[in-house]
Simulated scan of single mutants.
Amino acid sequence: MQLKCVAIDDEPLALMLISEYVSRIPSLQLLKTFEDAISGAEFLKHAQVDLLFIDINMPDITGIELVRSLEKKPMVIFTTAYKNFAFEGFELEAIDYLLKPIDFTRFAKAVDKATEYYKYKNAEPKDQPDDSIYVYSEYRMVKVNVNDIEYIESMEDYVKIHLPGVKPVLTLMPLKKMLEKLPADKFRRIHRSYVVAVNKIKSIQSRKVQLAGIELPVSDSYADFIKEWAKR
């Protein structure tokens, strides 16, 4: 399998570096490079492209504006010389951001993420693994192992995915939509603000679900779950 890719950057040296890096990765096929963002955007409208490497800061149009304008969006890896990314990029669900000067090891890691995500999105339903999901967090696509999730907390427009021993993953998504991504037999909503992994529950007492190191409330609307859990 090869991902067909395009690179857009107003800096010729940056394009040369990306072209050289792409040539070292057999899973990539570079279709074309563009120093002119407008020409690149026109090409993307008519070509079948799987992955786009694009600079954020360009003179005629920003990379974020260009990607937003595309009716059919490929996977995107942004390249930038700036550490502070525009928040607007969040909604575009970029696979990754690469900070210039780009190191090959970091480049290859971003490509691995894109390849993995491509396989996930294009697998037949019967071949879809239920042990991982992808969410957009901290300006990049993040893979989360479903079996590691302890509970999920709603924070208005965001949800916080709590995992053991690491920082929670924060993503822009309503709790209802997150539930749709998860296997129904493994996760249950117990409150308007909480979803728990059923196999992570230690005990339930006085409308309180006991997990490792935390206690979560069960609201009246979801009280039937207590009886269901007791029968397991």
Rank of each mutant, 00 (worst) to 15 (best):
M1N: 12
Q2G: 00
V6G: 02
I8R: 02
E11L: 07
M16A: 10
M16V: 08
L17V: 03
I18M: 04
T33C: 07
E42G: 11
K45H: 11
V49C: 09
N57I: 14
D60N: 15
D60V: 13
G63I: 11
G63H: 09
K72D: 09
F85E: 05
F85W: 10
E88N: 10
G89Q: 08
F90S: 09
E91G: 07
E93Q: 13
D96G: 09
D103M: 11
T105L: 14
F107C: 04
K113S: 06
E116D: 11
Y117I: 12
Y118H: 13
K121G: 01
K126G: 03
P129G: 03
D130T: 02
I133D: 05
S137A: 05
M141C: 02
N147T: 13
I149M: 05
S154H: 13
E156S: 14
D157R: 15
P164D: 00
P164N: 01
G165N: 06
P168Q: 02
V169M: 07
L170C: 06
L175D: 02
K181L: 11
A184W: 05
F187Q: 05
Y194M: 01
V195M: 03
K200R: 13
K208M: 14
G213N: 07
I214T: 12
L216S: 00
D220L: 15
S221Y: 10
A223P: 12
A230L: 10
K231F: 11
